[in-house]
């Protein structure tokens, strides 16, 4: 079980790399859906089958694997964009930064004073690495839709962290987080639509004109 879990977490990291290096939005969204699907398996593998984990996995799968990607697909269909053309930082540099951040996460988590049962698991480094990837995505991309993607990756990182605490955390809190996410993406897509109508582009740079 543990090997499978570790392999899945590594797959999450590889998907992170892919997300940083790819410019096509459709494949990015697919990858995020895939990542969400993998994440929804984690509670089952980490903590065994129980009502709690089954519910969590089911909701996570529905939201991260299906609902949010669907919303995003609809959004890019509405605003007619296929790819992020001009990132603020190029694809190769972001990829390099992402790898360095991942390496940093792995080395850093080796030095954290974790409880013994967590010190060997990959949850902490992968969670940190995914958080860093989300940040990088948010920083380096221009379009509102890729910003939303970055936000999603970021949330995935938090989800992986949450896996360590699933036993301790009440169900309500987790559902709240997931629901928040859904609402966030909703708001984002509506906002995107508005930006697109207002400025007829999707560049978030234009939002700077909203300042005084």
């Amino acid at each position: 079980m543990d090997t499978l879990l570790n392999l899945l977490l590594l797959l999450v990291i590889l998907l992170n790399f892919f997300l940083l290096g790819s410019s096509r939005l459709v494949s990015c969204i697919r990858t995020i859906a895939f990542q969400g699907g993998i994440l929804s398996l984690l509670p089952l593998l980490a903590h065994g089958f129980s009502g709690h984990t089954l519910f969590l996995a089911g909701v996570a799968f529905l939201l991260k694997g299906i609902a949010i990607p669907y919303l995003l697909f609809r959004a890019i269909r509405q605003v007619h964009i296929r790819r992020e053309v001009e990132p603020l930082i190029g694809y190769v540099p972001t990829l390099i930064l992402g790898t360095l951040a991942t390496a940093g996460a792995f080395i850093f988590s080796g030095r954290l004073p974790l409880i013994p049962e967590h010190s060997q698991s990959l949850f902490v480094p992968v969670g940190l690495a995914t958080l860093a990837t989300g940040f990088l995505m948010l920083i380096s991309r221009r379009k509102a839709i890729t910003q939303a993607l970055g936000y999603l990756i970021f949330e995935n990182g938090i989800f992986i962290f949450g896996m360590l605490l699933t036993e301790a955390m009440p169900l309500m809190v987790e559902s709240g987080v997931l629901l928040d996410l859904l609402v966030g993406v909703f708001v984002m897509t509506i906002l995107m639509h508005q930006i697109n109508r207002e400025f007829s582009t999707m560049n978030t740079d234009n939002l700077t004109s909203l300042k005084e």
Partner: peptide, 13 residues
């Protein structure tokens, strides 16, 4: 190359 670098980091930990 970054992938191979990462595979090395996995071992360095």
């Amino acid at each position: 190359s970054l992938l191979s670098f990462f595979s090395l980091i996995l071992l360095l930990r």
